[in-house]
Design a binder for these strands. Sequence first.
RNA 1: GGGCGAUUAGCUCAGUUGGAUAGAGCGCUUCGUUGACGUCGAAGAGGUCAUAGGUUCGAAUCCUGUAUCGCCCACCA
Length: 890
Amino acid sequence: MTTKTKKINSKKSQLQTTYEPKKVEDKIYKTWEKSGYFNPDKLPDKKSRKKSYFIPMPPPNATGILHLGHSLMLAIQDAQVRFHRMRGEKTLWIPGTDHASIATQNVVEKLLLKKGVTKEDLGRVNFLKEVDKFVKDSKNTIKTQIKKMGSSCDWSRERYTLDAGMTEAVQTIFVNMYNDGLIYKGWRMVNWCPRCVSTLADDEVDHKEIEGNLYYIKYPIKDGGFLIVATTRPETMLGDTALVVNPKDKKYLDFIGKISQVPLTQREIPVLSDSYVEMEFGTGVLKVTPGHDPNDFALGKKHKLDVIDIFDDMGKISDKASEYHNFAKYKGLDRFEARKKIIDDLKKEGSLVKIEPHKHNVGHCYRCKTIIEPKISEQWFVSVNKKIRGGKSLKQKAILAVKDKKIEIIPEKFNKTYFNWMNNLHDWCISRQIWFGHRLPVYYCGDCENTMVQIKRPKQCAKCKSKKIKQDTSTLDTWFSSGLWTFSTLGWPKKTKDLKEFHPASLMETGYDIIFFWVARMIIMSEYALKTIPFKKVYLHGLVLDKKGIKMSKSIGNVINPLKMSEKYGADATRLSLIIGNSPGNNLKLSEEKIASFRNFSNKIWNISRYIILNKKDKKPASKKLTLPDKWILKKLENLTKDVTQHYEKIELSLAGEKLREFIWGDLADWYLEISKTQEKDVLNQVLKQVLILSHPLLPFLTEYIWETAEFKKGPKKLLMVEPWPAITKASKNKPAQVEKEFEMLKSIITSIRNVRAEYKIEPKQKISAVIYSKEEKILTSVKPAIEFLSGLSHVTIKKTGEKPENSSEIILKKASIYIPMGDLTNKEKEVERIQKELKNAKDYKLVIQKKLENENFIKRAPENIVKEEQKKLKEQNMLIKKLEEKLKL
RNA sequence: GGGCGAUUAGCUCAGUUGGAUAGAGCGCUUCGUUGACGUCGAAGAGGUCAUAGGUUCGAAUCCUGUAUCGCCCACCA
């Protein structure tokens, strides 16, 4: 063994043949963190970083474990952040968590219930302590998970929607909006969740079709006769305050103005007329329950009807109403128990005419799936229609931001969705009866009931000087605080340096499912607070589904855990599997096999690098001495750089990833690296270096690890994550195209020889020889060893022209004829069959071209260059056919 | 009820402003222990681009209708 091989072998023992992400990822992440480069203030070459780039990370809910949707978001954002950082921009990515009031409170409530404790047992203060404890834990879990994915976010700026700064921001904007008359308190019909015991915003209600019944109930009329009413919710009859018919409905003309009695309670209600009533639906008679239906509420208002609230906050028949309105026997019953009981009683009384099955849409709480109860309640609202600065409402400002293209939504199709929703936007109910969240900065005087809206708790009533001050018990909708995320994370309401430097954000990347909840709210809030857009671009990703396209859920058992996948296949492979084959706004079907296939890819990159590192011998050729393959791979690399850069710019990460894979696996590994084995010198090192840079945004761990192993750079700024992005060169177009053509010829020679080998089942071990006649003799001779090596030839003879060797298989290419002496293997029949197949192919293709050229209009109207190209193709095809036919004659 | 989108190989998807015989990955078939890699390599099979029309010299790509699927929004009791 020579000294040289010994040296290689010792190095080799350090370089495993398989890449083991588990062993390197945590270490690499720590190196990054230690460098401080996640923080834009600590980036190298600070002075030259003029442009700033900012992404506020959508804060995951503080409820715990991250899922693949989060991994997807992290992968996309990290790729963007790394790309912009390497491009020399002052790049900031702020991480954080959202307190997610209802969601988190529900989770903690459930946990406590397992121990048999209710939140009421604990009381508000102690319950909140429990929540805080829970949140602290899950925040840490989240942080660890974000790091595991390789996210290069600035932890020194980490935020939480309930931290002191955020709270200040929330209170400030609340007070300002109140003073501007944009926030008001009022009695409205709201969506009430009896399980959460709280209001919900309109968009927090999921409408689902359920199989219900239509109950036909007889309402007696005082002067005799009766009306039959159809309803899906018989229990609400306890709160009926009128019957209404359509004035055009001849059947009921005589009843208008009469008095009816509500069955079971005998309460008297009028029979009115209103064109709102559909004559075709049910019996054409509508019972009006203004307390428990938004339409009935509107109708009730119009006809000045009483409102009877029959339920308490938990959705049970209320004590007060039941006694006052004569239905005490239902007191305390739950909504659905009451329904059963009432149906029974109606049957007994003979008032129930019939029951028909009926499908209808019912609102459900988006958090706990409980059926929503419309309810009249005094709540706080943000007015979206009140005109403010510039005579425009918040709604109008938010619409204009997108209409005027100040904000670009990717993919574009969501523009329509956005406008559609915005145009139909009603005032936003922002108060919740949840304990966990931002308390409203609203105080009441215990004596004179004066309302004071201010950040600090008043010491005494501003009016009557009373010291009995109570704070409003409601908390704010979670989205109210997350709506401020783009600027509250930067220190607003303080006029910070960060705010000046980074707002509006460069990109908001989030799921399309929260475009209304969040994206729209951020636009509204930023337009109000900062008079500007919150971000320049919105990129909306889709949902991550299982292999079959079904949503992942614990109950189905089809959940893929991103951490387990990263553990098993590497964070880089997991990231790639989420990015490649995915496009904005579309859902992604993911399987473990897909992740595994990208593990294979990272291993391939590792082994390519391993080979290059172990064979690194300072053997870069002088630029004048570049071989055809050298020039070709460099040209390919140049194209790749241009394409990939553009794809990153346009956030077309899937395309960037595919281009990289194509180059690395196809061009580099399968062709150039193999050919380099036949060359004294090569450009492998230089190509690898640039490939690592280009791939870093997508595969940060692996590329950084190889960068370090290959010792591409030494010194303090040696990390790949801050390596400058390569410039896109403007090379002349003609010459490189020539290089590509020549290399394509080389490839087709090699491929066709391999082809013949496969057809004749020539063992790879068995070396054969070949003769090539080509006008390109010179260039082919220059790559002779490559041809021999890659097609398994013992020897190849290359000449301009010559005799056809005896007993040989013949391959006719456009620019070369190849003869492989077959000796014993000669098989005339097979040879004829093969050539005939080729001939048929060639003729079919010729026909296609001919058809085009025979079309007069094509010649007349198609652009000249296209016509010329077709003519050239026809010529080539004719020659090929001629050669093949000649061969058949022999 | 209104709106949006999809339909390309067995599966998952690419396919820029219309321009070669429509591509990739996975899967499948055959072959292979070449000193980077079997988490690999070579060769191959596989598609009337949902459907019917239209525009065009030329359509997977643009327009219209139809079918199927999906999503979002919506106050018919």
